[in-house]
Nucleic acid binder design. Sequence first.
DNA 1: CGATACTTTGAGCGCGCTCAACAACCGTGG
DNA 2: CCACGGTTGTTGAGCGCGCTCAAAGTATCG
Lengths: 248, 248
Amino acid sequence: MPSKMSPDLSLQCGDCPIRHRAVCARCDSDELSLLEDIKYYRSYEAGQTIVWSGDRMEFVGSVVTGIATLTQTMEDGRTQMVGLLLPSDFVGRPGRDSAAYNVVATTDLVMCCFRKKPFEALMNRTPHIAHRLLEMTLDELDAAREWMLVLGRKTAREKIASLLSIIGRRDASLRLIGTVDGMSFELPLTREAMADYLGLTLETVSRQMSSLKRDGVIELAGKRQVSVPDFDRLLEEAGEDSDGGLVA
Amino acid sequence: MPSKMSPDLSLQCGDCPIRHRAVCARCDSDELSLLEDIKYYRSYEAGQTIVWSGDRMEFVGSVVTGIATLTQTMEDGRTQMVGLLLPSDFVGRPGRDSAAYNVVATTDLVMCCFRKKPFEALMNRTPHIAHRLLEMTLDELDAAREWMLVLGRKTAREKIASLLSIIGRRDASLRLIGTVDGMSFELPLTREAMADYLGLTLETVSRQMSSLKRDGVIELAGKRQVSVPDFDRLLEEAGEDSDGGLVA
DNA sequence: CGATACTTTGAGCGCGCTCAACAACCGTGG
DNA sequence: CCACGGTTGTTGAGCGCGCTCAAAGTATCG
């Protein structure tokens, strides 16, 4: 029985919501129909594990709707999130056949999957796909390095402010608006997931959220809805040079 | 006046020490000669900054000999290393024209440079180059995510042991040997650089090095020469499941 | 209603930072 | 030859941020 939010699982690529951002973004209509031949959709429920670290990967694909996390876990249970996958983000690594991380759906989620072998073959014949994947991987590498600074050198308060500013920015870019003052967005993560992202405990996350609220940097409606009266103030709290915020 | 260690700056690609690992690894001889036409060598002294963050990048290229670091710095001086560049590693990002990080030579260093525009044009015509760059970027992303776990969740002692085990492994792979007990290698980093890599202070690095030495996990000859009597013991200290260490 | 999951808040402790002094090891020059 | 300044590394004392352990509050759902 399909849930009320379930997308049409026989979606045509031309109508796909992530058509212009995903690994297929650069493909022309001929290339798209080749992809269309080998794709299939798959749905996951919130909390479900999509891939276990170490498992054989049979497919790669793109997140169409929903949010997933990439996590690493040590033997004693310490967990670090190493990636946050939003719609259009790519899952899987061509050229490697076992997964290096756990992939977990944090919301209900739909993936556009390609069996790994046919996708690799197609990628080798289709520079548009390979180039787009390179571009996306370079962006992810930049994001990972940005997080290394956050993890290694920022205080708990700065970490929280950094996370909020990044989610706020992503949300604004999805809605094609700037980082307006008074912006408001929904946190797609639990306190524990935030802690795993930031290398903190969930108690510390909660305390710092309360502190930022007390100091007027953010406002909270419920646990998840965040609004930011002054985005530059948030950037200051994140320890970033908010020199206008004008990116050329 | 050439220094005693300076390599031949008119090196043919066929004789290049990084020929089989760098971005050109997959190229056939025709493609190689196209690269040869646009390449030039450039030398840097230890301590010299190769690229400043924010600067316009005129070239991309490969480290031929020597070691460089990628670092990010906050306004108040807090510094985080986000990459360690060894021979064959690629510097620069095709498709972006300003550098995101500082690149600093930590030893005397030689780079094989390509002017950015011609390289990008060649890459678009040469899938072998694009594929190799994708492969290298995916490897770097994995390494960055490995470091996120280290930075976010490991103790100071585990961080030091992790760094030593990685440098030891790299050294062993360069010399085409396994991680033998009694292995010995030279640390290419100062205590401060280690601290910047691990998100620690240099004092903490020094204390943990002394502690690992006191406990017999490592032996030190001078400040930089490290030997490891029992590699599995080092991995345990790093918090890694040393289940044989047999990578399939 | 109770059950479960998520969050907040409090109290106390310990790891890693801060500040400081000192040691070891250069190359340079009187 | 030792004196010297500079760089790099070691070690000590004390403190504070973020963790640990604990309890209570809130929201959703059967």
